[in-house]
C-alpha cells in the first residue's frame, strides 16, 4: 500500500487546494458590497409578485438614479429575515400581523395599508364537481382543500366560514395557499379557498363567484423600515397613487 502513496498524494493535495480556492471565491462573491445610494431593496409577499414587478419598472422609469431590488417570500418568512437584520428598505406584507411584528421589533418604522385581498372559491377548469356556493364546501362527498388554520390564509378561511355560519369539511389543510392552488389546479381537489388575486395568475383554476366573501379580507401593509428613507417613501406613495391603484386593481386587489 505504501508503494501507491506518492501517486495519489499529489492529486489529493491539489484537489484540496482547488476546493479551498473555490470556497474562498464563493465567500468573496457573497460579500460584494452594494451601492446604497441608488438601490432600494423591497421584500414583498409572494402574492404581490406580478404587481410589484410592474410597479418597480414604473418606479425606475420615473426615478433615473434608482434601482429596485425585489425579494419575494411568505410574509412570515420575510418578517423573520428582516428582524434578523436582512438589508431591506421596504416590507410589503400580505398580513397585518407580520407587519405589526416587524414594526414592534424594529421601532421607528412607518406602516401604511395599501390594499386588501379576500378569499374566493377556486375550482378546476370546468368546475367538474359543480360547486355553486360556500355551503357546498361542507359536503363530505367533495374533496376540499383549505389552508391550515396555522397560516394566514387558513385563519381567513376560518373567519369566512364562521361569518357565514358554516362548518367546512376539508380533506386536506395545506401549508400555504400555493399548495391549495396546486391541489385544485391538478384536479386532486374539487374546490379550495384561495385569494382572489390568485385566480387570475394561476392557470388551471377558475373562480366560483360568491356574494359576500369580500367582507372578510386581509390587509396588505407597506412598512418603511428606515426613518427618513425618501426612496422607500416615494414607492409607498406610488402604491397609493392612481397608477398604483390601477395596477393593484387589475391584479384583483381591493383598496385598503
Amino acid at each position: 500500500m505504501t508503494g501507491t502513496h506518492p501517486t495519489w498524494r499529489v492529486p489529493a493535495a491539489s484537489a484540496g487546494a482547488v476546493a479551498c480556492a473555490a470556497i474562498l471565491a464563493g465567500l468573496a462573491g457573497a460579500d460584494r458590497p452594494r451601492d446604497p445610494g441608488t438601490t432600494v431593496t423591497i421584500y414583498a409577499a409572494s402574492s404581490l409578485q406580478g404587481v410589484a414587478e410592474e410597479l418597480a419598472e414604473e418606479f425606475e422609469s420615473s426615478h433615473d438614479d434608482v434601482t429596485v431590488v425585489m425579494s419575494y417570500g411568505g410574509s412570515s418568512t420575510l418578517a423573520a429575515q428582516i428582524i434578523e437584520g436582512a438589508p431591506a428598505n421596504l416590507f410589503l406584507s400580505a398580513d397585518d400581523v407580520q407587519a405589526e411584528r416587524v414594526a414592534d421589533q424594529l421601532g421607528g418604522t412607518t406602516s401604511t395599508p395599501f390594499a386588501s385581498n379576500s378569499l374566493t372559491i377556486a375550482v378546476p377548469i370546468g368546475n367538474p364537481a359543480g360547486v355553486r356556493k360556500l355551503a357546498d364546501l361542507t359536503d363530505d362527498a367533495l374533496v376540499v382543500a383549505l389552508c391550515s388554520p396555522d397560516v394566514p390564509c387558513g385563519r381567513l378561511s376560518d373567519q369566512l366560514a364562521s361569518t357565514a355560519g358554516l362548518r367546512l369539511a376539508p380533506d386536506t389543510e395545506e401549508l400555504s395557499v400555493a399548495d391549495v392552488l396546486a391541489k385544485v389546479s391538478s384536479g386532486q381537489a374539487d374546490a379550495g379557498l384561495v385569494y382572489l388575486t390568485d385566480i387570475a395568475r394561476t392557470p388551471g383554476v377558475e373562480q366560483v363567484v360568491v356574494e359576500g366573501t369580500e367582507a372578510v379580507a386581509t390587509s396588505y401593509v407597506a412598512v418603511e423600515l428606515r426613518p427618513g428613507d425618501g426612496t422607500a417613501n416615494a414607492f409607498v406613495d406610488l402604491l397609493a397613487s392612481p397608477v398604483g391603484r390601477q395596477v393593484l386593481g387589475d391584479a384583483g386587489f381591493s383598496p385598503p
Binding site: A145, S148, E174
Partner: peptide, 25 residues
Amino acid sequence: TLTFAGSLEGVTRTAPLLIYLTRET
C-alpha cells in the same frame, strides 16, 4: 407527501408536515 397526499391532522399530516406547519407559529 406534501405534494401528493395533502395535510390533514390524523390522516395525512405526518410529523415532518406538522414541523413545517408550526415552524413559524
